[in-house]
Design a protein around this nucleic acid. Sequence first.
DNA 1: TCGCAGGTGGTCG
DNA 2: CGACCACCTGCG
Length: 312
Amino acid sequence: MGKYIYEGVKDFNLDHIFDCGQCFRWTRQEDGSYTGIAMGKPVNVSLKESAGGDPAGEADRAGGRPGQDGDRPRLDLVIDNCSKEDFETIWKGYLDLDRDYGKIKETLAASDEVMAKAISGGEGIRILRQELWETIVSFIISQNNNIPRIKGCIENLARLFGEPAGEYGGVQFYNVPSPEVMAGLTAEDLAPVRLGYRAPYLVETARQVMERGGMDAVAAELAAARTPEEACEYLRGFQGVGPKVASCIALFGLGRLEAFPIDVWVRRVMNRLYGIDEKDIKGMNAYAAEHFGANGGIAQQYLFYYIRGLDE
DNA sequence: TCGCAGGTGGTCG
DNA sequence: CGACCACCTGCG
């Protein structure tokens, strides 16, 4: 399979998207592209600048007017190992390409001065629309853990217990094992994955999914939830899923863009930039609901990327 | 060595 | 309820 090229992509930065903690199965290559797997398809994603002078993103960052092309530089998105059909059915949705992030950024920046600054640090973020089960597994693993180890655990889990998903660049890829498979395992079986105390959480959650009729049934119940709070309440019924993990699943696995996951980084940034007490989770949720509204999850990503940039 | 890393579950008061 | 605290593991 060859390359698929999506011409004229805007508000799209590979590092902002794949290195902001929302996903764990993508690896940065030496050339700045990312190789990874989603929906059982391994691909490489890169950007190519077509003719034009200015550095990418400047026009948008300064509050550029959408709809005006002018002599703005054009950026093409290149997906290698991707057919036109795969692009239409998988990657367009996964990469959230149909959403107008320029407009969202304008809205967020207009209502909040701090956010205007945060956006300029991660202006190319997009919320990936990830698979539900993989998102549940990933964020249960993420608790009290660091990103390199989270990635390692997920790779181990896929390699040792998942189905082969084809090869790319000389590397064999594997899918995260299904709830059916994981429900049949024990925490002991999972020892080589090095999940620590999270292993029994995953096994129990897989069993709970099966008890509820499998992943499709769970997804249907979650789709019926009117609000992200309702979805989170349901998700918190799973072992190892607390408020933060539930919120991440709602945002990244269900596409509930209002969800506003509050982790240690967001707590820090909300305290440092808005003066809200670090323990006042309720206050932070209220602030997000009022100022960020339907775009809470996207705002959270800008804040997250921003504070990480400040600390590094 | 010991603390810490994108929290959660269990136990108290 | 809200405030603690242990917890697998690997790294600095």
